[in-house]
């Protein structure tokens, strides 16, 4: 009798655990959908007044007179992320090849904590570092090269800070990608008399190409959503930037900077929620495509 009760409680407990587990799983997977719906509903009132294209491709941002053109912010975001990728991409690619093909195991053992710590540093710390080092650097070193006197709070500073922030992220994925390329492939080429570098150039890069592209685009999407660090160094001036030394005003910075005053102006909160929604959609799309490419690469080799 006692044993029966014991078993019954065990089964009951198992059922309770299982249903909690199922709930947690469903909840976690629905999270992006809930996020999307929530932000969309908040921005719906703006979308009733204007069409989405009107908002995305108009350059007039005057919330007080009801004009919500987001083009300056979108262009700024593109500038900053492209510069970040231009700086971080080559560095990561070269370093990943070095670490997986040439370096001794000890170098990799040093690099692992370096990557982890770089990835773990909060973005506000990157922002402080940007203000302390990168902003004066652009003002005092880069500016004079182009014969311009600038404050240093510019798209270039934002791009450089972002580049350092996405380096650990891209590097990690690239190392994984190069690891999936089978050893035999490189060994065969080596045995035919090729140098290591020829193997890298003609075999490794070609084989891993989709993986490299995806790693870069994942880094790009990460840079696209970065807020605080960029906000602190990029200058935040509403205009369409035409050069890297000008200040910019990326989309996440726009959201973060205006949350205080947005409730008093009609439609302002809808506009900012729409900005967040646009950010969410772009980042998710980038992520799905590039993760899928990496997944395919791992399966095919």
């Amino acid at each position: 009798m006692a044993l029966q009760v014991f078993h019954r409680t065990r089964i009951l407990r198992s059922r309770i655990h299982s249903s909690w587990m199922t709930f947690a799983l469903v909840f976690s997977l629905l999270l992006p959908v809930i996020l999307g719906i929530g932000l969309y509903l908040k921005s719906a009132s703006l979308l009733q007044e204007y069409s989405i294209w009107e908002i995305l491709f108009s350059s007039k941002w005057k919330p007080l007179s009801g004009q919500f053109g987001m083009l300056p912010f979108i262009i700024s975001s593109l500038w900053v992320t492209m510069i970040a990728l231009l700086v971080a991409g080559p560095v990561c690619l070269l370093s990943a090849i070095h670490l997986t093909q040439y370096a001794k195991p000890i170098v990799l053992r040093i690099m692992h904590p370096v990557i982890d710590i770089l990835a773990g540093i909060p973005s506000v710390i990157y922002g402080v570092w940007g203000v302390l080092v990168i902003v004066p650097f652009t003002a005092d070193v880069i500016g004079p090269i182009f014969h311009k006197s600038i404050t240093g709070y510019s798209i270039l500073s934002g791009g450089i800070v972002l580049a350092v922030m996405i380096i650990p992220f891209i590097l990690n994925i690239l190392i994984e990608v190069f690891r999936t390329i089978p050893e035999e492939l490189t060994e065969v080429t080596l045995s035919l008399g090729a140098t290591r570098w020829m193997v890298v150039k003609h075999v490794l890069i070609k084989k891993a190409f989709p993986g490299i592209v995806s790693a870069f685009s994942l880094g790009l999407s990460r840079a696209f959503g970065e807020t605080i660090a960029v906000l602190m160094v990029v200058g935040n001036v509403t205009h369409i930037p035409t050069g890297a030394l000008q200040p910019g005003y990326p989309l996440p910075a726009l959201i973060a900077n205006n949350y205080g005053e947005m409730l008093s102006v009609p439609m302002y909160d809808s506009a900012l929620m729409l900005a967040a929604f646009v950010l969410l959609v772009i980042v998710i799309m980038f992520n799905i495509v590039s993760r899928w490419m990496i997944h395919r690469l791992e399966k095919n080799i």
Partner: peptide, 9 residues
């Protein structure tokens, strides 16, 4: 994919 969603969102 969700890991990639920015915290500002």
């Amino acid at each position: 994919v969700m890991w990639g969603i920015p915290s500002i969102v």
